[in-house]
Nucleic acid binder design. Structure first.
Ligand SMILES: [Mn+2]
Ligand SMILES: [Mn+2]
Ligand SMILES: [Zn+2]
Ligand SMILES: [Zn+2]
Lengths: 139, 139
DNA sequence: TTTGCAAGTGCGAATCATTTGCAACAAAGA
DNA sequence: TCTTTGTTGCAAATGATTCGCACTTGCAAA
């Protein structure tokens, strides 16, 4: 018994009433294969590897639309460029290795819980949050 | 018995061998009076209130120099503009009220501790981190 | 299948925050 | 006071992202 699979990005976009163009097919394909946190230029590079005709403005527009509908997740780490990943099944936060630039995901139920607690203590309700831990490999 | 006071920014800059110009005097003064998290434009506005002749390029250059020496702290919240605050006595993290834009500081020893723990578990040493919690006032 | 048309695209120009080159200026030590 | 450099103002450059617009195309209705 495998769990119910999430519909493909193409299907989700169709459900949203978007037109499935050749460009979008390629862009969505590349995003679905993504297992890291590429910036727009890198995504465009991967997309051009399949269809060299896709303009970067189209990539930007499509990423924005997808992020607006929470079909992908947008990040901005300290290098100042937008990075993207497919919408994760469950929330996670990130280590960023300052020496290699590598991004590593982690989950800490404990930290999540304490955030709720401290927010409540201040009379707040959490809308979203971002925990980025910049790290070095321990010698 | 009052604790030892931190030398003024002007003194710290002089210690670093920087020339204390009229512009810097004003910029450092404004920063020292800062108890919020203004962006460059807002800082420039406050500075111009004292000396209208200070150019915004000078403000940018001075802020960069100060941040390089850790005499002030630089942030980039989700609005995409750099914000600054005087170097805090002790580390803290931030709530950002998504409805008002207000930035509220908080400290959680527990969260800090759990970050150390999870980093260690992954074989990392923490260089720095950023925890931003976007919140709404609880109804 | 064809057609109509709003949504989508390519391309170059515009934006916007931030940085930089350079000539003129002015701290600060001698 | 003189000299040496670090600083400044200004305007132009940057770099990532967005936008305007004419052209194209997906796709629903005929
Ligand atoms: Mn991730
Ligand atoms: Mn703060
Ligand atoms: Zn989290
Ligand atoms: Zn912290």
């Amino acid at each position: 018994m495998t769990g119910t699979e999430r519909p493909s990005l193409v299907e989700q976009c169709r459900d949203n009433g978007w037109r499935i163009t050749g460009q979008r097919r390629v862009i969505l394909d590349v995003i679905e294969k993504t297992d890291d946190h590429p910036d727009v230029e890198e995504l465009h590079r991967r997309i051009r590897g399949i269809d060299p005709g896709v303009n970067i403005a189209t990539v930007y527009r499509t990423l924005n639309k997808l992020a607006d509908e929470n079909l992908i997740e947008r990040h901005m780490f300290d290098d100042g460029r937008l990075r993207y990943e497919p919408a994760p099944d469950a929330h996670h936060d990130h280590f960023i290795d300052v020496e290699t630039g590598e991004v590593i995901e982690f989950v800490s139920e404990d930290i999540e819980r304490m955030q709720d607690e401290i927010a409540r203590k201040h009379g707040f309700e959490i809308v979203s949050h971002k925990l980025e831990i910049y790290v070095k490999r321990r010698p």
